[in-house]
């Protein structure tokens, strides 16, 4: 009787899980496994059908100079965007959390870059960076700076791409910080005030540690975004000049759709996934111990 009951409960359980499981398997697990499988095959054409080639795709990836270049770019991109966008987000959140005239307007204007589509954003920035007629050069000209070919110079192009990503992301992260700040009881600040703690001391010793769970969340998002946010490249540089602004995901796109090399793209995708997984696990394991969850 009771075992029949248990069985029936299990059946119910599985039935309830089925819709979600089907969606998850169809759109997440199957593509991931298919990608992994594809990375062990060669790209097929009419004349030469696809065949199993083991680790050959990985081997040619290691010999691919462009791969190493985009990987290096991606690391700089991450190092450039993550800390700065988080710091700015936190600063803006603390600033708009306080009493402020037109607070709603300020919050909204900080958030606006986030809701604009990246393609539109990139089109705006394209005309900021354009030499001679761009906003940057025109403002620079007022102060007597010479015109600079921002996107056409391998030394500045990645910096330009990073600036856009920061501009786009900081407002988004600000919302999370703002939400977290609003859950902090105001008595904590009052208690600290009575003890004579300065705003900075309070921020350093109380606010910041209490925001650590948010920071971890934002950090993981920022890391993932630093591999994911490549839309601006399509409009601004197409990865150029000479791959100076190309990023891993953009290179995957090129391999898949410009070179029609689905299998090499799969190989790169597997590497990207592995890297992201390692980073995310590392963050959780290392930071989790040092974070206070309420």
């Amino acid at each position: 009787m009771s075992s029949a009951h248990t069985t029936r409960n299990q059946v119910y359980g599985w039935l309830l899980l089925t819709p979600a499981a089907i969606l998850l398997i169809t759109f997440t697990h199957y593509p991931a496994i298919a990608t992994l499988a594809q990375s062990f095959f060669s790209t097929g054409t009419v004349s030469r059908p696809s065949k199993f080639i083991g680790l050959d795709n990985y081997r040619s990836m290691l010999e691919d100079e462009v791969f190493w270049k985009v990987l290096e770019n991606n690391i700089w991109y991450a190092v450039g965007t993550i800390p700065i966008s988080i710091a700015i987000a936190l600063l803006m959140a603390v600033w708009v959390n306080g009493k402020l005239p037109l607070r709603g307007l300020v919050r909204m204007s900080y958030f606006t870059p986030t809701i604009l589509p990246m393609i539109a954003v990139a089109n705006i920035w394209l005309f900021f960076y354009t030499p001679e007629i761009g906003l940057l050069d025109q403002v620079g000209a007022l102060f007597g700076f010479a015109s600079h070919n921002w996107l056409g110079d391998t030394d500045t192009v990645l910096g330009c791409i990073i600036a856009i990503a920061i501009w786009k992301e900081a407002g988004f992260f600000m919302i999370f910080y703002l939400a977290a700040l609003q859950t902090l009881p105001p008595e904590l600040e009052e208690a600290a005030k009575l003890e004579g703690a300065s705003r900075w001391t309070f921020f350093r010793r109380v606010t910041f540690p209490l925001l650590m769970p948010t920071t971890l969340f934002v950090l993981i998002n920022a890391v993932i975004n630093s591999f994911k946010l490549v839309d601006q490249l399509f409009i601004l540089t197409k990865g150029g000049p000479d791959n100076a602004s190309s990023l891993l995901l953009y290179y995957i796109y090129e391999a898949a759709f410009s070179f029609f090399d689905q299998n090499y793209a799969s190989t790169l995708t597997v590497v990207l996934l592995l890297m992201l997984a390692v980073i995310a696990i590392g963050q959780f394991v290392i930071l989790d111990k040092r974070i206070h969850y309420r």
Binding site: L126, I133, G134, N149, L151, G152, D153
Partner: peptide
């Protein structure tokens, strides 16, 4: 100009 010249904004230039 030195460096690369953008296809998309050239006409405006």
């Amino acid at each position: 100009p030195k460096g690369t010249i953008e296809w998309g904004t050239l006409r405006k230039n």
